[in-house]
């Protein structure tokens, strides 16, 4: 493992990394791993990591805690398993059988929580092979600081030539290309020359907007709805169908006010849908334009 040789794309932001990962996998190149100082959302999906079954483990741990808690109390406080006979107690006239269950609720609850939390904690450490004092496999000290790394195994070069890969990564925002071992030592040059790869498609797929297209669409949008700024922001969530997430999306493409929404035309709606990939038909269906007009009048 230690001498695993990796080709690394170095990024300085998560969006570029995410885009690169997405595109690389489209080209059939499997990503060995990414190393990021912060969790990049959707990266796991795009990398094709299977959802971990830690939740099942948590549930089982919780269940264990629950029953252990009950067992503990029944064992100690009632005649369950004939344990109470040696020291029979009368406690404030309280029952000494299952009738005391209300008294058991708090402890059972706490035991459930305790076992869930620690169970999942230890499962996590175990699955991630983490333990105190373990020497970290650090490729580059900045991977926990401000650089994001996309790692590809040299074996993947069978699907894409090294130079293709390099230029692909550079095109998608990588600021540097490196070769390193997993433990951070410089990679020994492996002689294996990259085999010619299947042709990479030159043009990006139609569903992916290029930067130019983006700028164009944004420009179009701006010309229709006008310039908005964060200072004039309305609470777009008041429009039925807009939640905090949608609102954020709208904000990110420069739509902040009811006035802007009320000015939307079918053309600009299409632009929004292409830009955000979020609202196929939703804006027209829920008639945001007239909703926004009403809200403006208030």
């Amino acid at each position: 493992m230690l001498d695993k040789q990796l080709i690394l794309g170095v990024y300085d932001n998560g969006d570029d990394l995410l885009t690169s990962v997405k595109k690389l996998r489209k080209k059939g190149v499997e990503i060995f791993d990414c190393y990021t100082p912060y969790p990049v959302h959707h990266l796991d999906n795009e990398m094709g990591i299977k959802r971990s079954n830690l939740t099942v483990g948590a549930f089982l741990c919780g269940l264990t805690g629950f029953f252990l808690g009950l067992l503990l109390q029944f064992y100690m406080m009632t005649n369950f398993l004939h344990t109470f006979k040696s020291w029979p107690m009368i406690i404030g006239g309280k029952p000494q059988d299952y009738g005391m269950w209300p008294s058991m609720v708090p402890v059972t609850f706490e035991m459930t929580i305790l076992f869930t939390a620690f169970g999942i904690g230890f499962l996590f450490f175990a699955k991630s092979k983490m333990i105190h004092g373990k020497i970290a496999q650090i490729i580059d000290p900045r991977q926990t600081d401000d650089r994001l790394f996309l790692a590809v195994e040299p074996s993947e070069l069978s699907k894409m030539s090294r130079s293709e890969l390099d230029s692909f990564l550079t095109e998608n925002g990588a600021i540097e290309i490196r070769e390193r071992n997993l433990d951070g030592s410089d990679a020994v040059e492996t002689a294996a020359p990259a085999k010619p790869k299947a042709k990479a498609k030159a043009a990006p797929k139609s569903e992916e907007l290029s930067e130019e297209q983006k700028t164009e669409k944004l420009g179009l949008l701006k010309s229709i709805v006008g310039e908005g700024s964060i200072d004039q922001k309305d609470d777009l969530k008041e429009i039925s169908g807009v939640g905090p997430v949608y609102e954020e999306k709208l904000n990110s493409i420069g739509i902040f006010t009811f006035e802007q929404v009320s000015k939307l035309t079918p053309e600009s709606i299409k632009a929004i849908e292409e830009l955000t990939k979020y609202f196929p038909g939703k804006i027209e269906r829920e008639d945001w334009v007239s909703q926004a007009k009403n809200l403006m009048d208030k």
Binding site: D33, C34, Y35, T36, P37, P39, V40, L43, D44, M47, I49, S52, L54, T55, A58, T116, A117, I120, G121, F124, F125, K127, S128, K129, M130, I131, H132, G133, K134, I135, A136, Q137, I138, I139, Q143, T144
Partner: peptide, 24 residues
Amino acid sequence: GFFAMGWNGSARTWHRYEIVALIL
């Protein structure tokens, strides 16, 4: 290093990490 438990920011670990954080 002792307390970091060998953390290296791997996406796989982050994936589990986020699940654990959510459950906790």
